[in-house]
């Protein structure tokens, strides 16, 4: 049997701060385990508020941070063994990242295409610049753009939605099997947000990419996830099928979180219609 795509096993991350006298310990990730199957691409969502450890967890999955204890395996291989530059490049060609702020995701003084070309030359067999450009164009087409639209342009010439799509294309250049996206739409305007969200669905369905979607937003999580875990202060409090968990959360924290979501539909349900005085003033 093929090993799982990703296995996270009893992972802990402890940050210690301060000197000898006042040592402060922050248990950022506390005994987290989950796994993604190799042959079934899915959108796996990690839900958490600030301080839940979700970004730390993402950093460990991306091999940017070593876990304090526990093991993370990608296709059966412990990430700790990936140390040399060659091994890291090989790993990055399979596991890619998308970041939160599209306006900061590209160097404002450089042209955007350099990242696409660099990824093509480092991660694929495209050594010449023509081949790399072809590869970049191919990846851009997957997100509904083309190299002609992007070539030679600076980040400030594009909207947040476009930038995030270029970032996704950049991650796709090496045909990865896993993409970790940390709050990828929280900074994107409402009218452009769904384009990016739908793109993740397309990646899963058409290109077989598994996605770890990290967010605090339950509504988009419901819209695209297959499975999810809910984290609170480093621990996983609840997990399972996304629709089931969000429709009927069991853990007190999940219930609280679910109830805190402001819904447009509920806004007028129990209001008495007096000048739009909503249900919120309880």
């Amino acid at each position: 049997m093929r090993p799982n795509l990703l296995e996270v096993e009893h992972v802990n991350k402890i940050f210690t701060r301060g000197g000898f006298v006042s040592r402060r310990v922050n248990h950022a990730v506390n005994d987290v385990s989950f796994s993604l199957a190799a042959d079934k691409p899915e959108v796996f969502t990690i839900i958490g508020e600030s301080g839940s450890g979700k970004t730390t967890l993402a950093g460990m999955i991306l091999n940017s941070l070593p876990p304090t204890s526990g093991q993370i395996r990608f296709r059966g291989k412990d990430l700790r063994e990936i140390r040399s530059r060659r091994a890291r490049l090989e790993f990055m060609s399979h596991v890619q990242a998308i970041f939160q702020n599209p306006f900061d995701a590209f160097n404002p003084l450089k042209r955007i295409d350099r990242y696409l070309f660099s990824a093509a030359q480092r991660f694929t067999e495209c050594r010449t610049s023509e081949k790399a450009a072809e590869r970049a164009d191919e990846a851009l087409h997957k997100v509904g753009l083309s190299l002609a639209e992007v070539r030679g342009r600076y980040p400030h010439e594009m909207s947040g939605g476009q930038l995030q799509r270029v970032a996704i294309a950049r991650a796709l250049v090496s045909n990865p099997s896993l993409i970790v996206a940390d709050e990828p739409v929280s900074m994107i305007d409402a009218s452009l947000r769904m384009t990016v969200i739908n793109l993740f669905k397309k990646l899963r369905d058409e290109f077989g990419v598994s996605i770890i979607y990290i967010t605090h937003d339950l509504a988009t999580a419901y819209y695209i996830s297959d499975r999810l875990i809910i984290m609170q202060k480093g621990r996983v409090v609840e997990g399972g099928d996304a629709r089931t968990v969000l429709a009927a959360p069991q853990h007190p924290y999940s219930i609280k979180l679910r109830q805190a979501v402001l819904s447009v539909d509920d806004a007028w349900r129990d209001s008495s219609f007096t000048g739009g005085m909503p249900a919120i003033a309880t």
């Binding site: 594009m158 909207s159 939605g161 476009q162 305007d189 409402a190 009218s191 452009l192 947000r193 769904m194 384009t195 990016v196 969200i197 739908n198 339950l218 509504a219 988009t220 419901y222 819209y223 629709r243 969000l246 429709a247 679910r258 979501v261 819904s263 447009v264 539909d265």
Partner: peptide, 26 residues
């Protein structure tokens, strides 16, 4: 039409209908 799009593209828990983003950029 802009408002109409903003409102209809809001993802909601319990609503599985596909939502579209708006073409183009501001």
């Amino acid at each position: 039409p802009y408002t109409a799009h903003l409102i209809s593209s809001l993802p909601r828990i319990g609503d599985e209908a596909p939502k579209k983003g708006l073409e183009g950029s501001p």
